[in-house]
Write a protein that binds this DNA or RNA. Structure first.
Length: 206
DNA sequence: CGACCGATTGACT
DNA sequence: GTCAATCGGTCGG
């Protein structure tokens, strides 16, 4: 499968968001390859108080202000990484937070990274492999060294969906933010068992 | 420099 | 449901 072209990402973030759902995130690190189908993203934009780019350019958010088609990875809560797909044109400061994928390839590698080699493969562990932005980063071994990584590969890339299935895209408020709750900029695959949020958000249909 | 806090998670009542 | 862990980014003095 060919990686999505740069032009796909270099469009307004709210246009890219629903189209990214169903696409495959592929990660090669060491001699392992893992992959998952993207089922939940959140949009962040410079004119948006919830965005890291709201207050302008800083060393941390520099990658978000560059052109789309790269990864923006940041460190938070003293222990977690979160990964974003940068969108739009240079200077716009926007990105899509990868909140959940459906694990497709390399589930044993993901499990070892998340729980260790000795951990039992319970249903709970399976469900939590990639459910949430920091869990996803751990399973895909994404960290600060991947900040700015080119999404055409080879370390990480995104391909079009592997199925012709028609997805229903739902929207809701974003999770875990203080400001901007009125915006429905969380996009997810309706009915997916792999999304991160609580049931109370399920009613925000698009 | 010191202080505050976070696009989260896991453990626990 | 509640709450602590843990530390880099950011900003004010």
């Amino acid at each position: 499968m060919k990686p999505l072209p740069q032009a796909f990402f270099r469009r307004p973030v709210l246009r890219v968001a629903p189209e990214l759902l169903g696409c495959m995130l592929v990660r090669r690190s060491g001699d392992a390859t893992v992959a998952g189908r993207i089922v939940e993203v959140e949009a962040y934009r410079q004119d948006d108080p919830a965005s890291h780019t709201y207050a302008g350019l800083t060393p941390r958010n520099e990658v978000m202000f560059g052109p789309g088609g790269v990864l923006y990875v940041y460190f938070t809560y003293g222990m977690h990484f979160c990964a974003n797909v940068v969108t739009g044109r240079r200077g716009h400061g926007e990105a899509l937070l990868l909140r959940a994928v459906e694990p497709v390839l390399g589930l044993e590698v993901m499990s070892e990274r998340r729980y260790g080699a000795a951990a039992p493969a319970t249903m709970r562990h399976l469900r939590d492999l990639t459910r949430g932005p920091a869990r996803l980063c751990q399973a895909f071994q994404l960290d600060k060294s991947d900040n700015g990584a080119d999404l055409r590969g080879p370390h990480v890339f995104i391909t079009r969906a592997w199925t012709r299935e028609v997805l229903r895209v739902a929207r809701s408020p974003r999770i875990g933010i203080r400001h901007g709750r009125e915006k429905r900029w969380r996009f997810y695959v309706e009915g997916s068992q792999w999304i991160s949020a609580h049931p109370r958000y399920e009613d925000w249909r698009s």
